[in-house]
Amino acid sequence: MSHNKKWIVLFLLPAIILFSFVYAISLIVLIGTSFTDWSIGSSIHFVGIKNYIDLLRTPDFIKSILNTLIWIVLQSTIHIGIGVIFALILARKKWYFKMARTAFMIPNIISSAALGMLFLCVFNPQFGAVNNLIRLFGVKNFSHNWFMDPRTSFITVTLTWLPFAAVVAILILAEMASVDEGIYEAAKVDGASEFQTNIYVTLPMMKNIIGTATVLAATSMLQKLDIIMITTSGGPGNRTLNMPMFIYKTALSQNNFSLANTAGVYLIALGLISVVLINKIYGMGKSDV
């Protein structure tokens, strides 16, 4: 082994050890127990792929996959779109730049649990700001249970995270700051408008960072639990049930750890597929410049 390779191995070692103990072993145990029948206090029995088949026959699990997929798509498109537009606006560095950036960031720095409570108040049928606003515009005695009415529960839960794309905006802003000013000057000399510069110059150069932000946004939907738990618990019925919520209920309410771990394997698989697809779509890692 060359001297250089030894250093590479030495520097990689802490990360490898950390990964092995925190993730790799956990992952092996997770996958291993997904083929068993196991709950707290019971002995473990091998059951083959029974859990995998049972889950696919469980309506709540199918609904949780569908909801998670919809949220991944929404987060990868609308959420990213909002972040990109906001970044392009902030990049103009007008007088409102700092204030707008800070205000946009606030929902991202509040804990999800607190944010959940906040939205419960905002959408409260009696004293919530949304209903009060509608009453203010003349709809007397208006009262709508936004989170618990089956017609609005999904969209209301979605609104608790979809518009808040400050992280996406900040990532893109950071990348934009590294672009050579000469490129913009050249576009200006060629007579490009601000809109044309954004579409034909800025955005193509932001492809990789938008792809990265999309991966982050999409995979965040695979972890969404606390805000759903606080606002709807996955209800009414199973209308806002996602995979993490399903896993939580299966493990901690039903004490069925092996089935929860099987759902965890499906969740990881969905995450990997999402990441690969997004990488393909954005052609990440390849440079057009």
Partner: peptide, 17 residues
Amino acid sequence: IVGKLIAASLIASTAMF
């Protein structure tokens, strides 16, 4: 130890808590 690892795996896999 196996029990602890199994429980830890659940937590890691779902990133719930």
